[in-house]
Amino acid sequence: MITFAIFFFFAAVAVIFAAVVVLHRNPVVGALSLVASFFALAVMYVLLEAPFLAALQVIVYAGAIMVLFLFVIMLLNLQHQEEPRTRPVQQFLGYTSSAAFGLALIYYLAKFGVTKLPDGPFVSDARTVGIRMFEAYIFPFEMVSILLLAAIVGALILSGRTGAIPPPTGENKL
């Protein structure tokens, strides 16, 4: 009973804060809401018997990636950058098509989705996951490490002020 209450509470938290991310004009509020949404998803992972993954979700997403987002937003002083409301037709099409897509998704999930409960508990502690990771997925694991290295180098090259950057011309758009 209490697990159902936890599920509905955190599902509501995840959805409401995700909606704030989509609708709020201020990117700082959006980023903080996304953190709340990710935290609620970590609770979902606990309910799905994957506490190890829940901790990783909070450490990696809420603790590292979203801090990076906030850091960039604050560093570029974007919090005052309100978007002008232009192109109403495209906006309308965006809302309606995504709503239609979502309704279709939920309809087919409810119609063809899995409805029977899984049998028995699911063991997903760090030991099991680690052994499987380094037995079956060692090659993708190494590939991911190379990918991360490439990402570090790429991020440094893209964001480093190596070349001469022209001074701001005209009025500052901030």
Partner: peptide, 29 residues
């Protein structure tokens, strides 16, 4: 135990919100 398809529906809602944001917002971040 919470049925799996509830999680799937939650995931569908979140995915839809994400799609909606990508289609309608103009702020890159």
């Amino acid at each position: 135990m919470i049925p799996t398809h509830w999680f799937l529906i939650l995931s569908a809602i979140l995915f839809t919100l994400g799609v909606c944001g990508v289609l309608t917002r103009k702020n890159g971040i």
